[in-house]
Amino acid sequence: MVSDSPYEIAVNEKWCKKCGLCIAFCPKDVLESDGGGPIVKAPSQCIGCLLCEMHCPDFAITVKRRAEK
């Protein structure tokens, strides 16, 4: 899917403990639960606020600018 957002969200499933905080903190409903862990449902909506990344207790979610790749 081609995204309009300049941000890219990566979830490290190996470190994620499925607490759901990233989903709860996202102000744009970018993330949704796959029954515990997050899946990036609406990447184009990401505004790069980092609330998911900074509230992740597991260092498991990172938000990057696409140019940073």
């Binding site: 190996k14 470190w15 403990k17 759901g20 905080l21 900074m54 207790p57 597991d58």
Partner: peptide
């Protein structure tokens, strides 16, 4: 060394990241 030993939803990872 990750994933860490803390429980799911523990705040210590958040503070460590800060």
């Amino acid at each position: 060394k990750l994933p860490h030993i803390w429980c799911p939803g523990c705040g210590h990872g958040i503070v460590t990241q800060a």
